[in-house]
Design a protein around this nucleic acid. Structure first.
Lengths: 116, 116
DNA sequence: TGAATGTATGAACATTCTTTCATATATTTA
DNA sequence: TAAATATATGAAAGAATGTTCATACATTCA
């Protein structure tokens, strides 16, 4: 319709296949949340069920402060939710999407790692 | 078996459920690669088939230099491969894992976005 | 009420990322 | 060979990120 060769890509279509800016930025944000070993540890820990901040810190070998800062970020992005009981705060993994991203990546990485 | 209450989590098991450090760091790296709008655009553009650097830059609205730097990173992590023909460089999306991460996240984000 | 405990947060600092600018390298064309 | 074209890259600057330290806040216990 537009070009003489069939091997060269249709640049207009390539351009149209790219999602809208706010979608792309949102995607980048999601990946950014997961681009930190500490937060990955927190999230995999929470995949066993709700945990107190102190226990998260213990299980993931991080300082209480660092964990708290991470949880704040995860809360802001609705990845986890808090339930406060007395002076304790129980965090729950809320976002199933994020969880599937972690699982998918874990299997891929573990697989790759196994073949090298 | 070990505790009186059934509601409290087994912290040892929580700890064991966290993947080994080098795996977690590898996962974080993968997510880090995708945590940038420019690279997400490049990768979705490449999902249509191989493209020259110049066309990638055009389709994704980025400078040639910026695209080249990004491609260097993607190359280093075996996400894309180059094929040079003359003075042109054709880049191909090589990593299907990364592609599925992008697809999964796109559908999730687009969905979320639709409900808000 | 005062001390202890659990969590949250602000500021500061170090580190890592991203982009731009200038320029290098390689290849083709005139 | 010189000019033009396509891509790559190093350095620099600015932005964003993660950690620590000190401290605040809230709740429970003595």
């Amino acid at each position: 319709m537009s070009d003489s060769t069939t091997t060269s890509p249709d640049l207009t279509q390539v351009h149209n296949s790219i999602p809208e800016p706010h979608i792309v930025e949102h995607m980048a944000q999601v990946f950014g949340i997961l681009a930190d070993p500490g937060r990955i540890r927190i999230l995999t820990a929470l995949s066993n069920g709700p945990l107190k901040v102190r226990d998260i810190a213990g299980a993931t070998h991080q300082s209480q402060s660092s964990v708290s800062h991470s949880l704040r970020l995860l809360r802001a992005h609705h990845v986890v939710t808090v339930t406060r009981i007395g002076r304790e705060a129980f965090y729950t993994l809320e976002d199933r999407h994020v969880q599937s991203l972690l699982e998918l990546t874990l299997t891929h990485v573990a697989h790759e790692d196994h073949n090298h």
